[in-house]
Design a protein around this nucleic acid. Structure first.
Length: 560
RNA sequence: CGGGGUGUAGCUCAGCCUGGCUAGAGCGCUGCCUUUGGGAGGCAGAAGUCCCCAGUUCGAAUCUGGGCACCCCGACCA
């Protein structure tokens, strides 16, 4: 059926909404794709929903292709399921009660529920299984942002795999990784599968799919030579070489009155700031004071520190610092400190200026291994100018949207929920699970972020709301309108999705709306083209029309 | 949760500092006319809880206090 724009609900806006910042947010609202109902709560309007469903269908096909079975689990969930796995205390979880006081939650993921069902798997003969659904998720986000980028309610495709052993887990995981690559490629997205930050449940089977874009919450690090991609939080990188001053046989004190920053220190001593070290005392959850050391020009990565300490930590207070070092912040260093020292790899070789643990003094020529014994770890946050850890190539830093996340959760849920099976040897074992999510809304937003120009969206073919936008510049001419209708019907019969702008509007408005909506091809019928028994066609990405015979339109659209 | 910003017509905004007649503009909307290849023009018109509550004042969109909502930065993000 040809969609008649005169009948559709596509409220476009001439101006950017005042509260929008991200390009995808602006264009999706302006194009009438989405509207906000409340902070982080959005309606997909008819054409927005059309795009959403196209993304869903691609996801569905690729999930089915790896043996996934679609189902539908409820949103309303009894709290007991989550109490069993200990996840009720997650602050993002929405809670509610029914009239008699029974407690429920609105989950943001369905591991508990799917594992509840997986208890019906009794034998290794039934494994592996991949179950998935598309359903509404709720998250009580402290700060929704960026239109569809971070929301409080959204639809997610979440899939769950169940396997009998590590080999099966690996197979399921890699099948999903490949399926996801196909999904994003089909959606016209540039994405990278990268090691996700490990976090609580992490481990090596935790991979994020990042789509570089103008807005987003992650930073993607890629090598110019294409051999390395990582999330900034866990990325490895090679910092530049410092210009070291002359080597010293032993640390030498130097007075540095009033110097509290690396910048001031480097300036005062006339040295490279990369030839200094920065001391950050932190206190672990167990209450132990640990000294983290990074190069003066580097930033400490909190994620990496978390990994290095195998747990959370907080910056030490002024009193704790004074008690442990006998000096205040700004003059701290490794020498003379009694506790554990974790030093960044960049401090392994060379002599650095460090705090002397004496207010107003520093030490020159401090050398790891000779003057103090640290445990080395990668602690620094990579930054512009670093080189690729694989090949030494230049690294690129781009903001990115996380469009998918796949990870392995082992027995985290099957244990507490007692989802077990009998293995071939007759022993009872917990199912090994994996979890695989894709947010179609984010895919859609990322597609707009990656494909747009100053006039509007340029949808990738596979997810465009319509394949062809036929503009009837009829201006009261029933003949022109008739030809446009005929043409649209022809394209429709050939299986294309067609939207016909039959509105009683001026040409300029139709062109502007067509550009904004962003369908891949535009077909214009007007008095001028009729004179030539022709129509004008153009791809959305181009800026000029091509006049072709009416009879050639279908072929042109299909061959383009 | 910390910091910053905004809230006036459907949308984008002016007015607020320095209180004062009936609260404005552009776009959009309704009717009529004209026009019809990049948001054209004319005439007529509809449309407001000036975010809410309280206070100050003869008088509050404007000043004060409290609250709410939304946006941005940060924290958070199993």
């Amino acid at each position: 059926m040809v969609a008649r724009q005169s009948q559709l609900f596509i409220p476009t806006l001439r101006e950017d909404p005042a509260d929008a910042e991200a390009v995808s947010h602006k264009l999706l609202v302006r194009g009438g794709y989405i509207r906000q109902v409340s902070a982080g709560v959005w309606t997909f309007q008819p054409i927005g929903w059309r795009v959403h469903r196209k993304v869903e269908q691609i996801v569905r096909e690729e999930m089915d292709a790896i043996g996934g079975q679609e189902m539908l689990m409820p949103v309303l969930t009894p709290v007991e399921l989550w109490e069993t796995t200990g996840r009720v205390s997650i602050p993002e979880l929405f809670h509610l009660e029914d009239r008699s006081g029974r407690r429920f939650i609105l989950p943001f993921t369905h591991e508990e529920t799917v594992t509840f069902h997986a208890r019906e798997i009794k034998s290794y003969r039934e494994l592996p299984k991949i179950l998935y659904h598309f359903s509404v998720k709720d998250r009580d986000e402290p700060r929704p942002r960026g239109g569809l980028l971070r929301v409080r309610e959204f639809i997610m495709k979440d899939a769950y795999s169940f396997d009998r052993d590590e080999k099966g887990v690996l197979t399921s995981f890699e099948a999903h990784r490949e399926a996801y690559k196909k999904i994003f490629a089909r959606c016209g997205l540039e994405t990278y599968d990268v090691q996700a930050e490990s976090g609580v449940m992490g481990g090596k089977f935790s991979v994020d799919f990042l789509a570089p874009s103008g807005s987003g919450e992650n930073t993607l690090v890629t090598c110019e030579n294409g051999d390395y991609a990582a999330d900034l939080e866990v990325a490895r990188a090679v910092p530049r070489e410092p210009r070291f001053p002359e080597r010293l046989d032993a640390p030498t004190e130097v007075e540095t009155p009033g110097v509290a920053t690396i910048e001031a220190l480097a300036t005062l001593l006339g040295i490279d700031d990369a030839a200094t070290s920065k001391a950050m005392p932190v206190v672990t959850e167990g209450g132990t004071l640990v000294l983290a050391l990074v190069r003066g020009d580097d930033r400490l990565s909190e994620t990496k520190l978390y990994d290095a300490l195998r747990g959370a930590s907080r910056p030490a207070t002024g009193e704790e610092i004074r008690a442990a070092f006998g000096a205040g912040g700004g003059s701290l260093g490794p020498i003379g400190f009694e506790g554990e020292i974790v030093a960044d790899e960049a401090l392994r070789e060379g002599q650095f200026v460090a705090g002397a643990n004496r207010d107003g003094w520093h030490l020159r020529g401090v050398e790891a291994g000779r003057d103090y014994e640290p445990r080395f770890a990668d602690l620094r946050e990579p930054r512009e100018g670093d080189r690729c850890p694989e090949c030494g190539g230049a690294l690129r830093f781009r903001t990115a949207i996380e469009v998918g996340h796949i990870f392995n959760f082992g027995t985290f849920y099957s244990g507490p929920l007692e989802a077990t099976f009998l293995d071939e040897d007759g022993s009872e074992k917990p199912l090994l699970g994996g979890s695989y999510g894709i947010g179609p809304g984010r895919v859609l937003a990322a597609a707009v972020e990656q494909h747009h120009d100053e006039r509007g969206i340029l949808w990738p073919d596979a997810i465009a709301p319509y394949d062809a936008h036929v503009l009837a510049l009829h201006g009261g001419s029933s003949e022109v309108l008739g030809v446009a209708e005929e043409l649209a019907a022809g394209l429709d019969e050939a299986g294309l999705g067609v939207i016909l702008d039959d509105r009683d509007e001026r040409p300029g408005e139709k062109f502007a709306d067509a550009d904004l909506l962003g369908c891949p091809v535009r077909v214009t019928v007007g008095r001028k083209t009729l004179e030539d028994d022709a129509v004008d066609v153009r791809r959305r990405a181009e800026t000029t029309d091509l006049r072709i015979a009416r009879g050639d339109v279908l072929k042109w659209v299909q061959d383009r």
